[in-house]
Amino acid sequence: MQKNVERTSVTNASPDCERTAGDARPVSRVSGFHQDEQGHWVVELTCGHTQHLRHQPPWQARPWVLEAAEREQRIGQTFACGWCAQGAD
């Protein structure tokens, strides 16, 4: 079994993270996407953080990341930022 090593995400200050009503978890918005050195898609968030969004069935089923039109539809949508939730800056 091959271990999947991920680079850490950008950990900029996070003033743009929001808290949704009735939810203590911070939420950011999708601002764009790019591919890493291996061709995996990475979401860029308004808070400055990033997160890999791999499509590797059956463990990670995200077929929408493979289609440019579907990625484009996600821009501006809310995204629960795990880095902001941890207080990482």
Rank of each mutant, 00 (worst) to 15 (best):
P57D: 07
L66F: 04
H40M: 06
V10P: 02
K3W: 10
W59D: 14
Q2W: 01
I75W: 07
D36I: 01
Q38Y: 11
V65Y: 07
A13Y: 03
V10C: 12
Q38V: 06
Q56L: 12
V42S: 03
G32E: 07
A68W: 00
P15R: 02
R62W: 05
D89K: 03
E70F: 00
V5Y: 09
I75P: 09
Q2H: 03
P26Y: 04
A88E: 03
C81H: 00
Q60L: 15
Q56A: 13
S31C: 15
S28G: 14
Q35W: 04
F79R: 01
H55A: 11
T11Y: 00
R25K: 14
D16C: 11
E6Q: 10
A61S: 10
I75Y: 08
H34N: 10
S31I: 15
R19P: 07
G87T: 08
W83T: 00
P57I: 01
A80I: 00
H49D: 04
S14C: 08
L66C: 13
H49F: 01
L45R: 11
E6P: 00
E6L: 13
Q51C: 12
N12T: 08
P58S: 00
C17K: 10
R74H: 07
A21C: 01
T20P: 03
A88R: 11
E70R: 13
D89A: 07
G82K: 05
F33V: 02
R7K: 14
L53M: 15
G82P: 01
L53W: 15
T50Q: 07
S9N: 12
A80G: 05
R71L: 15
Q86E: 14
G48R: 06
E6Y: 12
P58D: 03
L66G: 10
E44F: 02
A21K: 13
G32H: 06
R62M: 11
W59V: 09
V43I: 14
Q38D: 15
E18L: 14
L66I: 04
V27F: 07
G87I: 05
S31H: 06
R19Y: 15
S31G: 09
L53T: 13
Q51N: 13
Q77N: 07
D23I: 04
V5R: 10
W41M: 13
S9E: 10
T11F: 00
T46I: 09
A69G: 03
F33W: 14
A69H: 05
P58L: 01
S14K: 05
H34D: 11
C84Y: 02
G48Q: 09
E70D: 13
T46Y: 01
D36S: 03
T8V: 09
R54C: 10
G87M: 06
A69V: 01
C84R: 01
T50G: 02
A88Y: 06
R54E: 12
T11R: 04
E37W: 02
V10Q: 11
N12G: 05
A24N: 09
R29C: 07
Q86N: 13
Q38M: 11
